[in-house]
């Protein structure tokens, strides 16, 4: 397996002086292409902070994130944005769909940002994504006119549309009920199997984490455990 992402001695300190919070302390690990991993830990332990650093949405106080051997510390805002567009799909607890646009337009937004024409190949991909997500027939609906579960599925579809190598998801089912939650993880698994997409999912739910191949546990800003999940691994 090829190395996709390397976190090297990541440190994140919020604020300065007396109110400074050391949210991450010397976190290092490597994520291989195609892995399906989760990050667990208590509230305030630093899970989101870590994910945002890995997603190039925030910059570490020290340390480095490397993608496919490429250093990101020296990149400017524009290059980081381009790299996010190309490599990473984000799913957050909130869907962040654009309420001014239809489902179809929301799905094709990453392609539009990359400056790609919505050609036949792109349309095929969007239709396939819709089918995978069980959203057929909803493409012309306004994004606001969907149920919570549907919105989150569109957000997942949007994260997939550029066929990113990595999906970073922060509590993606935090706002969903049990049935929807299970559907989302089933979907993640299907996508992972179909496209070889790497997943790194933040959750505070141990049961969900148990279903992933690798569990990274964060405690008070430190990576305290990094285990392969035998149960799932054995099942494969």
């Amino acid at each position: 397996m090829a190395e996709l992402l390397v976190a090297e001695h990541l440190e994140k300190i919020y604020g300065e002086g007396d109110i400074a919070t050391r949210a991450l302390k010397d976190v290092s690990f490597t994520l291989q292409q195609g892995e399906f991993a989760s990050i667990v830990g208590q509230s305030g332990s630093g899970k989101s902070t870590l994910l945002n650093l890995l997603g190039l949405l925030d910059t570490p106080s020290s340390g480095n994130v490397r993608y496919e051997g490429r250093d990101t510390a020296s990149l400017g805002r524009q290059s980081l944005a381009a790299l996010r567009n190309e490599l990473i799909g984000f799913v957050f607890q909130f869907h962040y769909l654009l309420p001014e646009f239809s489902v179809w337009e929301n799905l094709t937004m990453p392609a539009a940002i990359a400056g790609r024409a919505i050609d036949t190949a792109e349309k095929d991909r969007a239709l396939k994504t819709l089918a995978l997500l069980g959203l057929e027939g909803l493409e012309d609906k306004n994004a606001n006119a969907l149920s919570g579960g549907q919105k989150q599925r569109v957000a997942i579809g949007r994260a997939l549309m550029n066929r990113p190598k990595l999906i970073l998801a922060d509590e993606p089912t935090g706002n969903l009920d049990t049935a929807n939650t299970e559907a989302v993880y089933k979907l993640f698994r299907e996508i992972s199997a179909e496209y070889g997409t790497t997943f790194l999912v933040v959750t505070h739910d141990r049961r969900i984490a148990q279903q992933t191949d690798r569990i990274l546990e964060v405690l008070d800003g430190e990576l305290v455990q990094d285990v392969r999940n035998e149960y799932v691994a054995a099942k494969e």
């Binding site: 997603g55 805002r77 962040y96």
Partner: peptide, 16 residues
């Protein structure tokens, strides 16, 4: 703000 934020997260440049 929210829309701009997510557009930027998805890779839209500052100028655009």
């Amino acid at each position: 703000t929210r829309q701009i934020g997510i557009l930027k997260a998805m890779g839209m440049g500052d100028g655009a």
